[in-house]
Design a protein around this nucleic acid. Sequence first.
DNA 1: GTAAAATTCTAAATCGGTTTAGAGTTTTTT
DNA 2: AAAAAACTCTAAACCGATTTAGAATTTTAC
Lengths: 347, 347
Amino acid sequence: MKSKKVSLADIAQNLGVSKTLVSMVLNGKGDENGISKKTQDRVMELANELNYKPNQFARGLRIGRSNTIGLLVSDISNPFYSKLARYVEDAVSEAGFNLMICSSDESEEKEMKLLEMLLNKQVDGIILSSTLESTDHIESLQNENFPFVLIDRTYENYETHTVVVDNRSGAKEAVEHIIQNGHKKIAALIISPAHISTQIERLEGYKEALKSYQIPINEYYQKVIQREDIYKNICQVIVEWKNDRMMPTALFVSNNQIAIGCLEALRDNGLSIPRDISIVSFDDIDLFRLYSPPVTSIIQPINSIARNAVEILLGEIKSRETAETVTKKHKLLQANIVIRNSVLKLA
Amino acid sequence: MKSKKVSLADIAQNLGVSKTLVSMVLNGKGDENGISKKTQDRVMELANELNYKPNQFARGLRIGRSNTIGLLVSDISNPFYSKLARYVEDAVSEAGFNLMICSSDESEEKEMKLLEMLLNKQVDGIILSSTLESTDHIESLQNENFPFVLIDRTYENYETHTVVVDNRSGAKEAVEHIIQNGHKKIAALIISPAHISTQIERLEGYKEALKSYQIPINEYYQKVIQREDIYKNICQVIVEWKNDRMMPTALFVSNNQIAIGCLEALRDNGLSIPRDISIVSFDDIDLFRLYSPPVTSIIQPINSIARNAVEILLGEIKSRETAETVTKKHKLLQANIVIRNSVLKLA
DNA sequence: GTAAAATTCTAAATCGGTTTAGAGTTTTTT
DNA sequence: AAAAAACTCTAAACCGATTTAGAATTTTAC
């Protein structure tokens, strides 16, 4: 019943040739090793017939590669990352690689464990959206000269490949759009942990936009929402503003998770968009298109992030064979605004 | 700069003991093999100090297992599957396993390729949401006695482990809710490929509900929406109904993707929910809670699907060691309705 | 006709673990 | 004091591929 796996040795024995020969032929090295056409055909035929599949453990052990790459993000169930993962899957699979996806939950400890696991599993390279709580493990990858690409989030380190979105200009565009509609009291909501580059840069873009229109920057209007309880946190912020009679007329929120919490919180606090308050969000999700009113947002080129990251990573991996050194690539992609209907034009 | 990997032999040599001993100690078999406490401590200490990590290729080659399981779904970027994947990831990781996720795009060919890839990578088991175009590859897994669990979708085969949702009763509950609000002209929209068990069962649930209320079943109100162009397809259906002056008063749609297309298509055709048309969807996504009006839906116990599938799969895998045979488990989970505001009460 | 070159193929080492079968030493038993 | 038992440890085989170094045979060169 349980058919044992076919091995190289089986094929070799069956044909009365050596394992060496079979291995060479199946790896397309028959010609360069002067194996006769006739023998090559016999090997190929039998391998097909027996449905031979090389044992990846043995192969990996010998050649030290797995043909697998790792993707480490904070949460694969976040639509931004699940879409990214899908594009990455498609891109690596076109190149004959497999993918291993992990979620770190923004926990540094988990991230380090997962990174170690991936290395342990001998992935050939890693695409990493790091929580960046600390960067020791990244620098360690760097020192070991292990192929990896940082995506989505980075830190000041020009020694690593990076593929990121221009968060600053995206956020700036969002806030400028708000300003151009006559708003002055504009608040920014970012998500914890607030040290992550995307959040910092989006906040900076917000400030830049205000500055360029000579609108005073007020810390009171910059809030960090705790990711553990987004909805409640936003409600608290709203209540605070209400009590202080300082309600902003517009909101810039820094990702899809806060946006969802916001839409819910605003509704539950009886605030109507855009009549009572305007909103623009970074990230774009189905919801925004369908919400009433449709929500203006900054759309990230997710496919492009994936394609670029994979291309760079595979290049880096390939460079290992030729021992050439690759200059570190830094890809900065633009995120563009999709104007819908969530910003009120003030008189 | 590039630190070479530490191997068993390194540790053994360093301590002046055999590889055997080191291997035993590190695998917790020191006591049962009568290795002295003192030696065990020395091994442990050095292994920690050198940060030894066993080579998984070598280990896998010898013991024939990878400690990895595969999850094959149609599309990891579909929120249903991305959530499922996350729960599965958490569940397997608690058990010390890793996860490999693949998307088949409802293509039988891709599914077979990916399945082969997973087997090739020597995963210890597979959780499979099959497109079920054909079931040869599943039966082949079955015959080889390879550990796997079918989730979400099944076919008449009592020889496999299955974890599925009670689609029929979930759909019935949805449609009964519609009926109880006074509707008679109720249409059902399912997604292609229509042979998938979830779609069939949900359609059956719809018919059962109608039957139990003596509402005539009309094929005209049962439409299969092509997944390749959901929005356009739904628009066509709406136009058809409009032209025939046969517009239903309520819609039951069989998954989140059609629901999204529907909300968009209804809006663009000037039909307001629930005034002009009521709607209930299978699946629950953030959008439904936030849509205006909030959309009544059937919520699937995704975490429970994941947990059950993993538990059964790991049990099956473990049974391999003890050579006992496991009776095939069939888990049927309930999906419950969340009543919101998308169904109009007819006078 | 023999040396050199070309052609076709193979034995054995290797990767780094796990496991089997058993060796060497010390302690206990009789 | 010899035999048995207990304790502690090891050499070597093994998993299944790849790769190195070279062997055997045939062809070409002179």
